[in-house]
Each structure stands twice: as structure tokens, then as C-alpha cells.
Computed example of a mutant assay.
Amino acid sequence: MTPTTEDELAAIIKEADGPLRIAGGGTRPIGRACNGAALSTAGLSGIRLYEPGALTLVAGAGTPIAEIEAALEAVGQRLAFEPMDHRGLLGTDGSPTLGGAVAANVSGPRRIQAGACRDFLLGVRLVDGQGRIIANGGRVMKNVTGYDLVKLLAGSYGTLGVLTEVALKVLPAPGCAGVLRIEGLDDDAAVRALCRALGTPFEVTGAAHLPSHGDGPVTLMRLEGSEASVAYRAERLQAELSGFGAAKLETDPVRVADLWRDVRDVAVFHDSPGEVWRISVKPTDAPGLVAELPGTQALYDWGGGLVWLLVPEGCGTGAAEIHAATAERGGHALRVRGDRDRAAFGPLPAPVAALQDGLKQKFDPRGILNPGLMARMESA
């Protein structure tokens, strides 16, 4: 089913007599698989309003991200939250959509400086599990009506409602980008260097460490702005990080863009078999967590606060060990690639789980929207 209007979508949901499997571009099959009838938002596509001067864009949930990025690029603007393209990592086809990015709160390397996807949402329109059309928020930056509900939908994976339209804030694109590279650091030293860089006033917009990259480990820090600003901040940051080794500056726009696209999309794991986990922890806890999970490989983003973990088959590390090591450090883990017959999300504290269940009951009392997708592993 591919409705082309909000009213048609509402009628489909209201009349549904069984579970519905909600999808946008079909590029991000994350969570436990749902066997419901397929319901696509691809027909709810198109940019409805774009006011560059107001930094505001409104588009249908099924609008391809590529279409939005092309429209923004034409006037020197961009999606500041840098949404990841999961196709290479998950081996999927199709085209990532705006609604899909919002539903999963997809936020790339620039999150450490600009914020997450949810931070740029101004308003949403959706159809809940009872077939009710709900409009929340607005189309301008000063309108914060229903702000909490707008944010609630980001990261709900279509389990509370089906997004039909999204209004969001966009930002100007910088004139220049540069990357400082430090070669050869171990994980602990690399995270310390990234934390040092992020603690300076030099506005680092990307901070990643690849333990295995070409000839060895490489630690990366991105700076964006005018050419003069990037040069000045890079020089100051090089001096700040002198104790970690020589930091070399790369400013070729093609190489810089390709490098951060690879970090954003976790390209290092695209052709490597095994499960892939997305783990959020305090940056300084990340190296110890990885060391505690033998046989795994890691990519550190967000200064170490985001760990992409590859778990090869037979390495001896399982979901229970990953969730336990993460929970011990106050973080959370999500299996992004792997067996979709099992729960992919980690356990929740009882009060939070009760709150989540209550929200689900309010928005989707029949439990027909992506049922089971956000099933969580039980606490040990």
C-alpha cells in the first residue's frame, strides 16, 4: 500500500485489521522484523515550502533526502545534522527519505557541534494508530507549539504514528572544510586527543578515530567555515594537540567530503561480514568498553561518544555481553545489522519502560504500527 494523500493514509490505518509494516525508502531495516502488511510513505513526497531566507523547509515524509539536499545545495544551504546513508552498511536499495531519517533520529558526525536530527524539527504531521491526523509544532523557528511531541516522534521508528509531513530548520553551508589528521594513536590516546579538541573554542564539527585505516590508525578532526577561519583554527588546534603527535591539515574539498562521508556511513564495515552495533557511551569509557569485547572492531565517532562495533561471527562476543558492558557504563546499544528475528534494542529501566508502554497505548492502542520492531532484550 502506497497512499498519496494524508486522508488516504488515515483511512488505511483506521480500517486496518492487522499489523502494518511502515517503511519510507526501505533503506533502513533496523529492529526486530515485523510481518505486517507493507505500508509505504513514498507517495507522500515533495517539497511543499522552502524559504531560504527563513532557513525553513517543509516536505512530505516520503521525499528523498537526495532531493532535499539538492534543493538546499542550490542556494548554499544544507541539513546540518548530516543524516547517514545506511545502504552500504545494510546492503539495501531504494532512496533514504526525510520521514525515515526523522523516525530513526538519524544524526551524523556533525551532531557533536550542530545537534541531532530532532533538534532541527519545527513541526510534524502524522497519522496515529487510530487513523487520527495530528499536526504538531509549526513552520517557523519561533513557533514551539507542541515542541515535546515533535521531538517524541524522532526516534520512535514509526511505532507511535506514521509521519506525513516534516518542517525543519536548515543552515547555511560553509565555504571551506579542513581535516586535521593524526596517525598512529591507540584508542585511548585518540579519544583523549578528540576530547581535548572538542574542549577548545575552535568549533570542531567532526571528531572520529578509525583504529584500522590504510596503513594504521588515524584520528580525524573536522573544521568548517571560511578559508581564513579554518586555517587559523587549524593552526591553533595543531598547537593544542602537539603532545599527541604531528597533526596534518587536509583541505582538498573532494578528499575531505569523501573522508567524512565514509565516517558518516561507516564505510569501513561495508564489506565485512558480521553484526554491527551502534553504542552510545561517555567518550572516555569507549576504549575500555571495546577492549572488554574481544574479537570486535570499532570506529569511534562523536569524539568517542558513538562507537560503531563490528562483531564477526564466532568471535565469542554476544548481545548479552555487549548490553552488559554498555549498561555498566550508563550507555545504550542497538544492533543495526544482524539477526532480525531477535530484539535489537537494549533493556530499559522499569520506569522508562512503563512510560514507553503508556505512550504506545495512547498513540497506537491496537498495537498495529510496526509491532515488535522496538522489542528490547530483557535485563539479565
Rank of each mutant, 00 (worst) to 15 (best):
T2V: 14
I13H: 01
G18R: 11
I30M: 06
G31K: 11
A37S: 13
L39N: 03
L39G: 04
T41I: 03
T41L: 00
T41D: 00
Y50W: 09
P52G: 12
P52N: 07
L55V: 12
L55I: 10
L55D: 05
G60I: 01
G62P: 02
I65P: 02
E69C: 12
A71E: 04
G76S: 10
A80F: 03
F81P: 02
D85E: 05
H86R: 13
G88H: 08
L90F: 05
D93W: 12
G94C: 04
L98G: 08
L98R: 04
A101F: 05
A103T: 11
P109W: 03
I112W: 02
I112Y: 03
F120S: 13
L121Q: 03
G123I: 12
D128F: 09
I134Y: 03
A135H: 14
G137M: 06
V140E: 00
N143F: 05
L152M: 14
T159L: 07
L163V: 13
T164H: 01
P172R: 11
P174T: 15
G178W: 01
D188W: 07
T205C: 14
H209L: 07
P211S: 14
P211I: 14
E235Y: 11
R236H: 12
L237N: 02
L237I: 09
E240V: 15
E240G: 12
L241G: 11
F244S: 08
L249N: 04
V254P: 00
V254F: 12
D265P: 07
E275G: 15
L289P: 06
E292V: 14
L293F: 10
P294V: 15
W302D: 10
V307S: 00
W308V: 15
L310E: 00
V311F: 03
T317P: 04
T317W: 02
A320R: 09
E321C: 09
T326Y: 01
V336D: 00
D339T: 09
R340G: 10
A343C: 04
G346V: 04
A350Q: 08
A350F: 05
G358A: 07
K362N: 09
P365G: 15
P371R: 12
A375M: 06
